[in-house]
Nucleic acid binder design. Structure first.
Lengths: 342, 342
DNA sequence: TTGTAGGCGTTATCAT
DNA sequence: ATGATAACGCCTACAA
C-alpha cells in the first residue's frame, strides 16, 4: 500500500493525498474526508524512507555508547533524559554500542552517515588519533558527552570529574586522613580515568601529603576489580591507609566487601569514599559517602544542544559542565579528635 | 555527494559505480580503481535511504522497552545480548522507551512501521485490548520478550517467572519457614507481577500453608518501595513472619535496609529471598539469596528468533523459556533444628 | 482547489 | 564490461 494506491482508490491525485496527510495546502472538505476514509480502511502509513530521501532529514539521532554492561553505570539515567528530550521533538533514536572497540566505533559513525541521521550524541571514552582524522571531516553534527577534545571543537557536556575528585579527596583530608589510597581507572578513559586521578593527586599535593605508591591500585569499573584492588593495597602496604578513594561506586562496593570479609569494619578501620552515587549507594553497609553528579542534566543538555544545532543553526553554548556534590553518608570516619564544636 | 557525482568525476555511468560498491557484476580493473579513488577522495558514502527504499529492506530492528529507569533491571544485559547478535548480522537498532505509557507504545509501533524497520523486539509489560486490535493487523514481524499473549501468537522468549517464584517459596518452606511474607509487583505487569505472585501462592497452597494477608505488600520495583513494603508488613502483623520473598532484588534490598535500620538482623531475625540476581546481590550484607535467570540467553534467543523469521521465513521455535536457578547465599536462615547431617 | 511531472539516490533490468 | 533507464514512494513547484 502506497500513496499512489490510496490516490487511485480515492479517485484523486497523489498530490492531494499528500496534502491531506501533511496539511500543506488547503483541500476541500469532502475530498479530505474521502481520502482519510481510505487511509483508515487500508491502514496505510506513509513510507518514511521516501519522505526522508526527499526531505534530506531523517528525524533520527544516532547515539554511540561504549560500555561493557549497560546497567553498570549511571548511563541509563542519561539515556533516559536524552530520549525524553528527543522524543518531545519527534526524533527517533538509533543506538550503537561499540564495546570499547575503537574500530567498531568508527564503523558506527560510517553507518550513521549512510543512514543519514540528523545528528550524533557521542559518549566518548577513548579518543584516538584515528578518531581525530576521521571525525575532522565528518559531515554530521556531533555532541560529545563525558569527554572533551581540544583538537575537535565539538560542543560537549561533561561531568566535572577533576574538581569532583579533588573535592572527594579534600573531604577525606578534612576528616583528618593523611594515609589515603586511590583505586583508579586506566588512563585510556580520559574522564573517569585521567581526570579523577588528577583531582586526587592535586588535592594531595596541595595539602602537602605524599602519595604512597603502595596505596594505589587500578580497577576497571567492576565490583570485582574493586575487591581485587583493595586486596592489592592491603597486601602491599605495611602501614595501612586509613582511607581509600575509589573512582567508582562499584569499585568502592567491591573494596568494602573485601574489607568486611577480612574482618575490617568500615569506616572504623578504614574509610571509603566513592564516585557516581549509584542507586544502591544509600543502602550499602555502611551507606556510601560519594560524589553525586547530575546525569539527568547531562542527558538533557546534550540532547538540547544537538537540537539547537539542528534547528537553530548552532548550539546555545559550546560546553556544559554538570553540577556535582558530595553526599555525606556513613563510610568515612572523622579522625579529628577535637570535637568541641559538638 | 552522490553516486551521480562520483560517476561524473570518474567518467563512468552510475551503474558502474554501483557495481564497484556492491561487487555485483565484474568491473574492469582500471575502472574499478579509478572509481575507488574518487570515492576515497570525496569521502562519498552511499545513501542508505535510497538503497533501502529500493530494496524494501532497512536492516534495522526496532526495540520497544517500557521502563522507568534503564538501569534498574537486568534489562541492560538483555539488550547487550540483542545488539551483539543483531550487529553480527549487520542490523542496526532503533530504541524506543514507552515509559509505561500504553498510547505512546502504540505510537512507537506506528513510527517503526513508517520507518520500515524489518522487525521488532517487544519487551511487553502491560498488554491491553487496544494492543490486541492494533497488533493483530500489524504488518511487521514481532518477537515478544518477557511476556506471552494467548490471543496473538507472536514468538516469545520468557523468563520462567511462575516456576522460579514457586521454587523460591519452596526453598523458604524447605528451610523450615511457615510464616512467609511476600512483597509483590502490581498485576498489570503480567510477568513480574502476576506470574511471580502465582508461584508464591501455589507453593504455599501445595504445602498447606495459609497465606497471612498481613504478610502481603506491594511495591513498584524500586528500593524505596521494598523499604516501605517491609515496614508495612512489620507494622501490620502482630506475629511477625520469619521470612519474606521479595519479587525483585531491589525491593529485597530495600526490605533488608528497613530491617537493619530497625535493629533486626538478616537472616537471624528475618530471612529474605529476592528475584533477579542483580550485580550487587552477592555484595550485600548479607549476600542475597535470590533467583538467577539467564538474561543473556533471553536477549540472544529473542534476536535469533527474529532473525530466523526475517532470513529463514519463520522462527525455529515459537517459544523459548530461559533457565533459572536459585542462588543460595546468606540471607535465608535454616530453621530446621535437625542438623545431624553436618 | 486540484493535477502533472520532475527529482531525491539508489538498484536492477535491459540493451549494447 | 558498460550504459540507459525504469522503478522505489514521496514531496513540491508549476500549471490548470
Amino acid at each position: 500500500m502506497n500513496i499512489k494506491e490510496v490516490a487511485r482508490r480515492a479517485g484523486v491525485s497523489i498530490a492531494t493525498v499528500s496534502r491531506v496527510i501533511n496539511n500543506t495546502t488547503p483541500v476541500s472538505e469532502n475530498v479530505r474526508k474521502r481520502v482519510e476514509e481510505i487511509i483508515n480502511e487500508t491502514g496505510y502509513r506513509p513510507n518514511s524512507l521516501a519522505k526522508e530521501l526527499q526531505n534530506h532529514k531523517t528525524n533520527t539521532i544516532g547515539v554511540i555508547i561504549s560500555v561493557a554492561v549497560l546497567d553498570v553505570t549511571s548511563l541509563g539515567t542519561t539515556i533516559n533524559a536524552i530520549t525524553d528530550v528527543l522524543k518531545a521533538k519527534g526524533y527517533s533514536i538509533m543506538l550503537a554500542n561499540s564495546r570499547f572497540d575503537s574500530k567498531e566505533e568508527l564503523d558506527y559513525f560510517k553507518i550513521f552517515q549512510e543512514k543519514r541521521v540528523d545528528g550524533i550524541l557521542y559518549f566518548a571514552v577513548n579518543f584516538t588519533e584515528e578518531h581525530y582524522w576521521f571525525l575532522k571531516k565528518y559531515p554530521i553534527p556531533i555532541v560529545m558527552i563525558g569527554q572533551e577534545n581540544e583538537l575537535l571543537d565539538f560542543p560537549c557536556v561533561l561531568h566535572d570529574n577533576y574538581y569532583a575528585a579533588k573535592l572527594a579527596t579534600e573531604y577525606l583530608i578534612q576528616m583528618g586522613h593523611k594515609k589515603i589510597g586511590y583505586i583508579g581507572i586506566p588512563e585510556y578513559d580520559a574522564a573517569a580515568g585521567k581526570e579523577r586521578r588528577k583531582g586526587f593527586e592535586v588535592a594531595m599535593r596541595l595539602n602537602n601529603i605524599e602519595i604512597n605508591p603502595h596505596y594505589l591500585a587500578e580497577g576497571n569499573f567492576s565490583i570485582e576489580s574493586g575487591y581485587a584492588s583493595m586486596k592489592h593495597i592491603l597486601v602491599q602496604s605495611v602501614v595501612k591507609p586509613t582511607a581509600v578513594f575509589a573512582a567508582t561506586d562499584f569499585m568502592a562496593l567491591g573494596a568494602m566487601h573485601y574489607l568486611t570479609e577480612k574482618g575490617y569494619t568500615v569506616p572504623e578501620d578504614m574509610s571509603i569514599i566513592g564516585f557516581d552515587d549509584v542507586d544502591v549507594a544509600p543502602y550499602l553497609n555502611p551507606p556510601l559517602t560519594t560524589i553525586h553528579s547530575d546525569n539527568h542534566a547531562v542527558g538533557r543538555q546534550a540532547a538540547t544542544l544537538l537540537l539547537q544545532i539542528l534547528e537553530e543553526g548552532g548550539p546555545g553554548i559550546k560546553k556544559f559542565v554538570a553540577n556535582y556534590e558530595l553526599i555525606e553518608r556513613k563510610s568515612v570516619k572523622n579522625l579529628i579528635i577535637d570535637n568541641c564544636t559538638k
